[in-house]
């Protein structure tokens, strides 16, 4: 077996006349954080949901851990964790009950407290999902991807819509998950995030992958080609100012 946990070859997805994914190919290595970067409508969610076996592809091949998305959907679902860009949870249940429900759906035994500790939500275990703040919702959503102790998790724009504190908090969480040896495939349109989190990134636009490399290499290549920022780079950004003034502590009132 190769050490690619994901292999995508000439993947195409058409919605009627629109070609949302236009013949992309890439591999994700075991244990890395791979980022799919692209503007809204680039085809990130479509690509992810095909890999997650939630959507049918038009043509091409996708293998997850050597399993084909055409034939082995059930086996694939048992070894992956999925955080959807938009998802809901069963209404009127508390977080620990939701975890028990998913544990049943995945056929695994879990300790809800332990999982909630991982995402710092233990004190919220008797709250409902809809009562959580944006960052807490995202953290809980990621928490549910970990229930079946997956080899690979998919995170679709996990930090979109969060404030700087909550984003940094989520980055720490993602780093912790990676440290356990879990492969992470994420999408984002924040470049700072990709630079900090991803071992390699693929930049996708209009359904085509333009380039795949590590963030460092991509930046070095650009600098070598003689690129210079038009404006003199300051040593700090406005975001640094914001974080400096308001602190790292995460706001969840």
């Amino acid at each position: 077996m190769s050490d690619n946990i994901i292999e995508v070859k000439n993947l195409v997805k058409k919605y009627d006349t629109l070609t949302a994914v236009d013949g992309i190919s890439f591999n994700v290595r075991d244990g890395e954080v791979f980022g799919l970067l692209g503007p809204n409508g680039a085809g990130k969610t479509t690509t992810l949901e095909i890999m997650e076996t939630l959507r049918n592809k038009t043509s091409g091949e996708v293998f997850i851990n050597g399993l084909s998305v055409d034939n082995d959907q059930s086996e694939i679902k048992q070894i992956i964790g999925i955080q959807l860009q938009a998802a809901g949870f069963y209404p009127n249940l508390y977080l620990n009950e939701l975890i028990e429900l998913f544990a049943g759906l995945y056929n695994v035994n879990t300790d809800p407290d332990e999982l909630l500790d991982l995402v710092n939500l233990r004190e919220k275990k008797n709250s409902k999902f809809k009562e959580l703040s944006g960052g807490q919702k995202q953290r809980f959503s990621i928490c549910t991807t970990l229930i079946n102790d997956p080899k690979l998790i998919f995170l679709d724009e996990p930090t979109t819509g969060l404030d700087p504190q909550a984003r940094r908090n989520l980055w720490e969480l993602i780093k912790r998950i990676k440290a356990k040896g879990t492969t992470i495939m994420l999408t984002t349109h924040y470049m700072d995030e990709a630079e900090i989190l991803c071992d390699r990134v693929g930049i996708i636009d209009h359904g085509k992958i333009i380039i795949i490399d590590s963030p460092d290499n991509l930046i070095d290549d650009l600098v070598q080609s003689g690129f210079e920022r038009p404006k003199q780079v300051k040593l700090a950004s406005l975001e640094d100012v914001f974080i400096n003034l308001t602190g790292h502590t995460i706001r969840e009132a």
Binding site: E52, L54, S74, K77, Q78, I82, L84, A86, A87, G88, F89, Y90, P91, F102, L105, Y106, N107, T144, N148
Partner: peptide, 16 residues
């Protein structure tokens, strides 16, 4: 209603 609130979609992400 489960479909509209995307609860079903999250369920289908499990082997159920």
């Amino acid at each position: 209603s489960l479909r509209q609130t995307l609860v079903l979609k999250r369920f289908f992400a499990t082997p159920v």
